[in-house]
Amino acid sequence: MKTGSIRDILYEAPGPKARRRIAWATAGALLLLAALLFIVVRQFYVTGQLGERYWAFFGKLTTWRFLGEGLLTTVEAAITGSAISFALGFLLMRGRLQKNRLLRWASTGIIEFTRGVPTLLFIYFFFLVVPQTGWKLSAFWKITLPCAISACGVVAEALRGGVNAVPKGQREAALSLGYRETRLFYRIIFPQAIRFVIPSLIAELVIVLKDTTFASIVSCADLMQNAKVLISNYDALLSIYLVVAVIYILINYLLNKLSDRLARRMNRAGAAERSAA
C-alpha cells in the first residue's frame, strides 16, 4: 500500500512553528522528568534506600539467575496464555458470526462473561474451586489458564472488529467468483482482518503478561513471585521492586515496538511477498 503508518495519516508533517513548539515542550518535559528523578533519588538517599545493603546482592550471579528463572516462567506463562486466549478468542469470534442462533448466543454469552469478570476472580476459581473437583493442576497452569480465559473474550471482540472492518465488497466479489462461506472466510476475509487487529492482539498479550503477576497467589514461581522471595530474604523492598518494574516495562516496550513493526510490515509488503512465494 502507498500509505505509511497510521501516524502519517492522522498527523500532518509539522511546519517550522509547530516544530519550535514541539522542541520547547520536549525540553520542558525533560526538565520536569529530571526534577522528579532528583526528588526520588534524594528521598531514597534521605531514607537510606541507597544504602549498600539494598543493592549489593545485585552484584551476585545467583540473584540474577533467580530473577531470570522467574522471568522465564513469566514469559512462558504469558506466551502460553496468549496462545490459548487467541485460539479460544478465534473460536468465539467464529461462533458469534455464525447464522446458527444457538451458537451465536452461546458465544456472545461467553464473550460477555469473560470480559466482565476480573482476572483475579478466575485465578481464585482455579486456585480454590478447581482443586476441590479433583482436577490436579500445576501452579503454572493455575495461573496460565485463568489469564487465558480472562483475555479470550477481548480477543474475540478484537477479531470480530477486524472481520467487520473488511469492506463488504470483498465478500461479494468472492461470492460472485463461486466461493462458499468457509473458504471465503479463510482465504479472503480473515487474512485482511488479521492485519487490522495485530496491534490490539499485541496489546492483549501485554495485558496477559501483566495478569501473570498474580502468579504468586497460586505460588507459581514467576518473576514477581521470585522478586517477593528476594525481598523477604534481603529485606530490601524498594530496590527489588524498582528493578523488577524496569524489567516489566522493558518487555512491554519491546512488545509495543514489535507490534508497530509487524503492523507496518504487513501493510506494506504482505501481498507482494506472498505472491513471490
Partner: peptide, 11 residues
C-alpha cells in the same frame, strides 16, 4: 462492480 472490489491483500 462499481468499486472494483479487487482483493486488497493480494497482488
Amino acid at each position: 462492480f462499481q468499486s472494483f472490489n479487487l482483493f486488497a491483500h493480494r497482488t
